[in-house]
Design a protein around this nucleic acid. Structure first.
Length: 662
RNA sequence: GCCCCCCUAGCUCAGUCGGUAGAGCGUUUCCAUGGUAAGGAAAAGGUCACCAGUUCGAUUCUGGUGGGGGGCUCCA
């Protein structure tokens, strides 16, 4: 057997010509796939003289993708084993896992998933080899004649999107055969690969859920059944992932909203419409009060506008043309009908407002404006109603009625760059004040197909946004062509305590509305000029931000936001009066303090306060009473005994005013 | 909006293969007076989401409506 020279992980080596990476990396079980001359390949790939080979670990991003993709194959095989008449869609790896779309005889139910999972375990145990086979379009179409979706993919080979490219991307059309113990194919799938060497290289996986998904993501296409799964390099990592999910579930704002008595969605009101309970109300008010204060400091003017308007306003703004699907249907007032039900006198149509901007424009327009007034910043906690599709509603973060911390800034073109810059600083600092620390920015630029406004305006505004973003020193992701048709925008993405990202604030330049409303101001030279309009919301919506903070803090709000800041717990009833005095002093100092005077035992009171995530428990017994002190029990279980009442009050007030977490 | 799943006491959930229901927590009352995450007892509390259909009889089966969950799509 002749020798060939290859480079393995940077080192020159001579190997037998029939050696494959699977043998070269045999001693390292972590290596499940490799790069040959920079391209990701199966370990079974034949090598030729001069190849540069690099082992890829199962734990690397590429290795994980291959693991998950191969697990998706195993799942597809299992599904066709258990449900023979099932047709295959596509099955790509995704963040933390994979999915595969199927067209089954009947939709899957949870029992089916268990059956599929155990079939998968058998396939994994079998150690079936993934064998790549190059085919031609004609052969593939013949071989896969019973798989209509696969045939469709063959037709679009090369031009596929990210997802379909997993199946048919690249220059060659390939099929992967799973070989059984006897070396004969037991199952095959159209696939670009690469794959793990064999199914036994799947260390840990779990099927998560089944759901429906439109074929190739379009509402017009048939609906397939998608099964989501996850796969990891080790059982430990799988367990850690499942724990993270459990943790996320524990912090779910919908659950905490119930447990902490913050808000609810009474069925009588309607889907997506929340009521805030007293405790939720306190948090919300604290959020709003602080925001209001900061807006005052930033020279915003506070305005109010009604929740309803005649149709004319939204005709003028254009919302009825391009947003009517998102609006509640009109109320028709003063309509007069003939006896037969036909209209004798047309009524007046009123709409619930889905946006505040048209109202603010009317305020701008209510009199002649001078350049001396600019930038004019009109702020409102504006409650809007949007008829969101029922399937998108999600607790308080995606509701049908919600309140935006909305402002519209009218300024000159010259003022725009400085305004955007200071605005972004304001936004980020405010979010930091609420406890979010980790941000990145997303800059959405023009989609030339779908936009209004002058090229030069777009360039100027985009450039101003880009500079403002750059000045923050934060990672900025470009969302090419992602802007709304009326202007470019920056959105602030924030990471929460367990690393999930939430889109928070948006800053949006608008070239359309000033035109439609013919907004003008008198410039220094006496000419009439059109102002630049900037839409911005920092929380997005108060409800949504409330939900994000609830999940971020897992319900353990920092004292300045906590609905109850202090619970007083007497060791026994005999000390209740003493502690009651201390609590009164705290209340007088502006602290939200309550005495637990129930006849529970103190242990139970501690437990209750702990479960309500109250920041401070103030306990008093004989020792404390004799020395005019109280004892702290903090949320983390730590305690501090014998603190003079005045010191205790000072400590609590300090964390409230500094908005620190405890 | 689409697909699948769910709706039983204030909350979290059992249960009834069709004969109108249970637990724990919570609530109320009583007894206990207790130094850091559940003291004890009793009581109250349900048109089994709603409306139809099938049936001698429906919380249970079927259909519809409402609400919720997971996804898809959407989120200007």
């Amino acid at each position: 057997m002749s020798l060939i020279n290859v480079t393995v992980d940077g080192a020159q080596r001579s190997v037998e010509a029939d050696q494959r990476p699977t043998q070269i990396f045999a001693e390292d079980k972590e290596i499940v796939v490799c790069k040959i001359n920079g391209a990701l390949k199966d370990l079974w790939t034949d090598l030729v003289d001069g190849d540069v080979v690099e082992g890829i670990s199962i734990s690397s991003p590429e290795g994980l993708s291959v693991l998950r993709h191969s697990t998706a194959h195993v799942m597809a095989q299992a599904v066709q084993q258990v449900f023979a008449q099932t047709r295959l869609g596509i099955g790509p790896p995704i963040t933390d896992g994979f999915y595969y779309d199927f067209d089954p005889q009947n939709p899957f139910n949870p029992d089916d998933l268990e059956k599929i999972e155990s079939a998968m375990r058998k396939i994994v145990k079998d150690g079936q080899r993934f064998k790549r086979r190059v085919t031609t379009e004609a052969d593939a179409l013949k071989e896969l004649a019973h798989e209509p979706y696969k045939c469709e993919l063959i037709g679009i080979k090369g031009g596929g999107t990210d997802e379909t490219s997993v199946e048919v991307g690249g220059t060659e059309l390939t099929i992967y055969d799973n070989l059984g113990r006897d070396g004969q194919p037991v199952w095959s799938d159209l696939c670009r690969g690469p794959h793990l060497p064999s199914t036994k290289h799947i260390p840990a996986f779990k099927l998560m859920r089944s759901a429906a998904a439109y074929w190739r993501g379009s509402e017009k296409n048939p609906m397939l059944q998608r099964i989501y799964g996850t796969a990891w390099p080790s059982q430990d990592e799988l367990n850690a992932y499942l724990e993270l999910l459990a943790e996320a579930e524990k912090r779910d704002h919908r659950r905490l909203g119930q447990e902490l008595d913050l808000f609810s969605f009474p069925e009588e009101i309607g889907s997506g419409l929340a009521v805030f309970h007293p405790k939720g109300g306190i948090i919300r008010r604290a959020m709003e009060d602080y925001s209001r204060k900061r807006h005052e400091e930033e020279n915003y003017d506070f305005v109010y506008s009604p929740h309803l308007t005649k149709a004319a306003l939204f005709q003028k703004s254009g919302h009825l043309d391009w947003y009517s699907e998102g609006m509640y249907p009109p109320m028709i007032l003063d309509e007069e009908l003939h006896a037969d039900g036909t209209v004798r006198r047309a009524g007046q149509q009123y709409y619930m407002k889905p946006m505040n901007c048209p109202f603010h424009n009317l305020i701008f327009q209510s009199r002649q404006r001078s350049y001396r007034e600019l930038p004019l910043r009109l702020f409102e906690f504006g409650t809007v109603y949007r008829y969101e599709k029922s399937g998108v509603l999600h607790g308080i973060t995606r509701a049908r009625g919600f309140t935006q911390d909305d402002a519209h800034i009218y300024c000159t073109k010259e003022q725009m760059p400085a305004e955007l810059d200071s605005l972004l600083t304001f936004v980020l600092n405010l979010l930091r004040d609420y406890g979010l620390q980790d941000f990145y920015l997303e800059l959405s630029t023009r989609n030339p197909e779908k936009s209004v406004g002058e090229d030069s305006d777009w360039e100027e505004a985009t450039e101003a946004l880009r500079k403002a973003a750059l000045a923050q020193g934060l990672e900025t992701v470009l969302d090419e062509g992602g802007a709304a048709f009326y202007g470019p925008k920056i959105s602030v993405q924030a990471k929460d305590a367990i690393g999930r990202t939430w889109q928070m604030s948006t800053i949006q330049v608008d070239f359309q509305l000033p035109q439609r409303f013919e907004l003008e101001f008198a410039a220094a030279d006496g000419s009439r000029q059109r102002p630049v309009m900037i839409h911005r919301a920092l929380f997005g919506s108060i409800e949504r931000f409330f939900g994000v903070l609830t999940e971020h803090y897992s319900g353990a709000f920092p004292p300045w936001l906590a609905p109850v800041q202090v619970v007083g717990i007497p060791v026994a009833e005999a000390f209740a009066d003493y502690l009651s005095d201390a609590i009164k002093k705290m209340k007088a100092a502006g602290i939200r303090a309550e005495l637990d005077s129930s006849d529970d035992r103190m242990q139970k009171k501690v437990r209750n306060a702990q479960m309500q995530k109250v920041p401070y428990m103030i306990i008093a017994g004989e020792e404390d009473m004799n020395s005019g002190a109280v004892s702290f029990r903090y949320r983390n279980g730590e305690q501090k005994n014998g603190v003079p009442i005045a010191d205790a009050i000072a400590e609590i007030l300090a964390t409230i005013s500094q908005r620190t977490q405890v």
